[in-house]
Amino acid sequence: MTGDSSPSGALAESGLVAPRGPRVSLVTQGLGRAFGRRHALRDVTFTAGGGDVVALVGHNGAGKSTLLQVLSTRIAPTQGRALLDDELLSPGCPARVRLGYVSHQSFLYGALTARENLALSARLGGFPEDAVVPTLERVGLGRAKDRLARELSRGMTQRLMIARLLLQDARVWLLDEPSTGLDAVGLTWLQGEVESAAAMGRVVLFSSHDRGLLERSATQGLRLDGGRLTDFGPFRARATDEWLRSSA
């Protein structure tokens, strides 16, 4: 089953916040990924536009993480293709730098501090380094900025990973279980950041089993089952339980 929808985010739609920056479009056409003989993802076709917050739901092993990995360009599809603003996404493609990816792996050097890790990202991407400390303060790591990354809790690590997205000003946010390790305050903060990104015209795709994050932030739902897309549509058109029914 395929889906094709690209409504704007709730805040942007309301007209209260004008989307900033060029309009973003993320398109997949028959996207698939096999590992040997096992197809982790097959024939996934959907379109998401700026302001969309797409919740990926499905059982463990349904293909959510694989879809995010392929979209992030961390791994190549073995079938179909993905396009960001009509530009083909593949490992090493120029468009990769417009994607922000929070994965199960932190991509952080444990022997560097939070500030050093973010400064490294800034230098690698050519972002202003003077934005590093304000970004750390924005994500609530102002007091922990000089702690080694390996000494940070899971929730703090999650915040640091999202800080990198903010610094990078990514057009597309790909979040794999972003609420992992976050406390109630952290979850509220994360919801705010996701809404803010959508209001600025970003595309956000996230996988999560957190009901609060799904209900408050998702504008679109995308259900995967056995690597296939089985449902795609406005999230709030149906009860959350109906979306979560297929979730583990």
Partner: peptide, 19 residues
């Protein structure tokens, strides 16, 4: 070793840096 931990190599490959 440092690049293997936490898949830092993956992070570098997703960055703007030329491999």
């Amino acid at each position: 070793d440092a690049e293997r931990d936490n898949d830092c190599l993956g992070g570098l490959l997703l960055s703007a840096m030329d491999p």
